[in-house]
């Protein structure tokens, strides 16, 4: 599925919830289902700066596609990581680097988060795209 198709799918899923609480509960469920993060990558190198809770993101590239592992010490943030990875993990480098993540506003994610946490979300997205951009640049050089 393309980045756009997955985002539309998420928007449809969230359309079922009308309260903040229901959305939170769904995000928590997603967080709990996130595949385990490889312990050897639980280091300072993979921490996303600018988040109030701890967030780890580890990228891997195969055949011009980028895959991510992610984790957080906050269950809610873990759920958000899981949403971002569902959209971006396994996509082409260039697609990730230039992705327009419109689903975030459409599901009201920013409104669900406090200002501090919203800044953390922005840091996460920036980091995911930066990884893609860096690998893309490296491939071009080859």
């Amino acid at each position: 599925m393309t980045i756009q198709q997955i985002q539309d799918e998420i928007i449809d899923e969230f359309a079922l919830f009308d309260s903040k609480e229901d959305k939170y509960n769904y995000i928590i469920e997603l967080g709990k289902k996130l595949p385990p993060y490889p312990e050897k990558y639980r280091t300072e190198d993979y921490i996303v700066k600018g988040c109030q809770s701890k967030v780890w993101i580890k990228p891997e590239v195969r055949d011009s596609k980028i895959y991510f592992y992610g984790d957080s010490d906050s269950t809610l943030v873990k759920g958000i990581v899981s949403l971002l990875l569902r959209v971006l993990s396994g996509q082409l480098l260039q697609e990730v680097a230039s992705a327009d993540l419109y689903f975030i506003d459409r599901i009201g994610l920013r409104q669900m988060l406090s200002m501090n946490r919203s800044n953390g979300l922005a840091s996460m997205i920036k980091q995911l795209k930066l990884y893609a951009l860096a690998y893309q640049a490296a491939e071009t050089l080859k």
């Binding site: 609480e21 109030q52 809770s53 906050s74 269950t75």
Partner: peptide, 21 residues
């Protein structure tokens, strides 16, 4: 095993104001 901020956010969804951090 629970992040204080998650507790704060979920309580806020119920109209309850607490401090976390």
């Amino acid at each position: 095993g629970v992040h204080p901020m998650d507790v704060g956010m979920l309580l806020d969804a119920k109209g309850i104001a607490v401090r976390t951090g």
